Lab assay of single mutants.
Amino acid sequence: ALRETGVIEKLLTSYGFIQCSERQARLFFHCSQYNGNLQDLKVGDDVEFEVSSDRRTGKPIAVKLVKIK
């Protein structure tokens, strides 16, 4: 799958939103999709991810998040 990059724009307890670098979009992500310690993730962090689609709504979502050092 194609990896994309973006910036954490909003972060809540169990989910957040990424502002994409490659496209004009804000993508939802669930915190279970982040492969690191959530305490280390904060607004403004650069992340890399794959784009999938929500099974219920069909909308694009970010999965398999990795923080870019």
Rank of each mutant, 00 (worst) to 15 (best):
L11T: 08
D46G: 13
G58C: 03
T5Q: 09
V43F: 02
P60M: 15
E48D: 14
L41C: 14
T5V: 05
V66K: 15
F17Y: 01
N35C: 13
V51R: 09
C31N: 15
E48H: 10
E22F: 02
E22T: 03
S52Y: 11
D40F: 06
V63L: 14
K42R: 12
L65D: 02
E50M: 07
G6Y: 00
K64E: 14
E22A: 09
V43C: 15
G16H: 00
G36D: 13
R26A: 10
G6W: 00
L2W: 02
P60E: 15
L2Q: 10
P60S: 10
G16W: 00
G6E: 00
R23T: 06
D46F: 10
F49K: 01
G36P: 07
F49I: 01
T5N: 04
K42D: 04
R55L: 10
A25Y: 15
K10P: 00
Q39D: 05
L12F: 10
E4Y: 05
I61S: 11
G16D: 02
I18R: 00
F49C: 01
I18H: 01
L27V: 09
A25I: 06
V43S: 06
R3G: 02
R55T: 09
Q39L: 07
K42Y: 10
L12R: 05
L38H: 13
S52L: 05
V66G: 08
Q24C: 11
F28R: 09
Q19V: 10
I8E: 00
Y15K: 05
Q33D: 02
V63Q: 01
K67I: 07
K69W: 14
G16A: 03
A1S: 02
T57C: 08
S52F: 03
V66T: 05
I18G: 00
L12M: 04
E22M: 04
G58M: 03
D45L: 07
E48Q: 09
E9K: 10
S52N: 12
C31L: 09
N37W: 07
D54V: 05
N37G: 08
I18A: 02
S14N: 03
K67L: 09
I61G: 07
C20Q: 06
K64G: 09
E48M: 04
T5M: 04
E48P: 00
T57V: 05
E9S: 14
K64Q: 15
F28S: 11
T57Y: 03
G6D: 01
Q19G: 09
L65R: 01
Y15N: 04
R56T: 09
V66W: 10
L11S: 03
E48L: 03
V43M: 05
D40T: 09
Q19E: 09
G6S: 00
V66Y: 14
N37S: 11
T5F: 05
L65E: 02
V7R: 13
Q39H: 15
E48N: 08
V47Y: 01
C31Q: 14
R3N: 02
S14Y: 06
E9D: 08
V51K: 08
R23G: 08
R55K: 09
I61R: 11
V63A: 12
F28V: 08
F28Q: 07
V63M: 10
G58A: 11
Y15A: 07
P60G: 05
K64T: 15
D54C: 12
A1L: 14
I68W: 05
A1E: 12
V66I: 14
I8G: 00
R26E: 12
L65Y: 01
L2R: 12
S52R: 10
R56G: 09
L2C: 03
K42F: 07
F28D: 08
Y34G: 12
V7M: 04
G6R: 00
I68T: 09
L11Y: 04
D54T: 10
T13R: 04
R23I: 09
T13M: 03
F49L: 02
V51S: 06
V66H: 06
A1Y: 02
I8V: 06
K10M: 07
K64Y: 05
E4W: 04
F29Y: 03
D45K: 01
S14K: 05
Q19N: 14
Q33G: 13
K59T: 12
